[in-house]
């Protein structure tokens, strides 16, 4: 084995990653170019709205509820070390709205929606349904990708908003029932502390994460190789890529919104 082999391997991986980023960027560009050009597929859009938005509500709600409750317990226990137990409502609110709400909803969407989109489109590809679409004069990006990405861009911010409220409510339940906070004071502290930009940034993050989640599912589904193994690989790659990109985008957006 040559001394340069590890260097060559790093080079190959880097080139591979850059090529993948390039392909994703081209795919995103092609998707964007089809958004405003007819024909439009309102039925597919409505189906995607329900699949991505409405049917994700239970998992988003449960995740937010338990996270908000756990956050209240952690802040109370941590705050007790320097007599700051009283800040539980404020920290739960800011933690859920600015950070945990959008990130956890984004990751749940990656798990639930990205995987489902990738598996569905990859299966369509290996069973020649995508080829059939083309022969039926229907552009696969217009018919399969645009409705899903648009639906995610619209519904995930709404899910994040709902997740934020449920997460704060989880903190409220633990704070009032377990930690002895006054219910009215808890709500008052939460409302007084949150600013408009906290909520707006949360929703903007939601839109970005939703777009990433749907786009990754579509991209890896369309790029799937043949056979059941190809579908499996596409699904796994889509979820990993979506999760990593969501976390990276979260850092960049947080840096852009809140850096001092």
């Amino acid at each position: 084995m040559s001394v340069l082999s590890p260097v060559a391997a790093i080079g190959r991986s880097t080139m591979g990653a850059l090529a993948a980023i390039g392909r994703i960027a081209i795919f995103a560009g092609r998707t964007a170019s089809h958004v405003f050009r007819p024909p439009f597929y309102p039925r597919e859009f409505a189906t995607a709205l329900a699949g991505i938005g409405y049917f994700s509500l239970p998992v988003v709600g449960m995740t937010a509820l338990f996270t908000g409750g756990a956050l209240a317990l952690q802040i109370f226990a941590g705050g007790a070390r320097f007599n700051a137990e009283a800040v539980v409502p404020q920290i739960v609110a800011i933690g859920m709205v600015r950070e945990l709400g959008p990130v956890l909803v984004g990751l749940m969407i990656a798990a639930r929606v990205t995987s489902s989109i990738a598996a569905e489109i990859a299966t369509m590809k290996v069973t020649e349904q995508i080829d059939a679409l083309v022969t039926l004069s229907t552009h696969p990006i217009k018919y399969l990708v645009v409705p899903r990405v648009l639906a995610a861009l619209i519904t995930v911010p709404i899910l994040v908003g709902i997740g934020d409220v449920i997460g704060v409510f989880g903190g409220y339940l633990v704070g009032t029932l377990r930690l002895g906070f006054n219910p009215a004071a808890y709500i008052q502290n939460t409302v007084d502390f949150l600013e408009f930009w906290d909520i707006a940034s949360s929703l903007i993050k939601g839109a970005a994460f939703g777009g990433i989640a749907a786009l990754m599912g579509c991209f890896y589904g369309m790029a799937s190789e043949r056979g059941a193994q190809g579908v499996g690989r596409a699904t796994k790659a889509s979820v990993v890529a979506a999760a990593v990109l969501i976390l990276a985008a979260n850092f960049l957006l947080t840096q852009a919104f809140f850096s001092v």
């Binding site: 369509m124 069973t127 020649e128 349904q129 080829d131 059939a132 022969t135 039926l136 004069s137």
Partner: peptide
């Protein structure tokens, strides 16, 4: 391209019906 494809019908090996 649409006009070109409109001339064709195709029966795929596995049917390729939309589930």
């Amino acid at each position: 391209r649409d006009a070109f494809l409109a001339q064709f019908g195709m029966l795929f090996q596995g049917g390729a019906l939309f589930d």
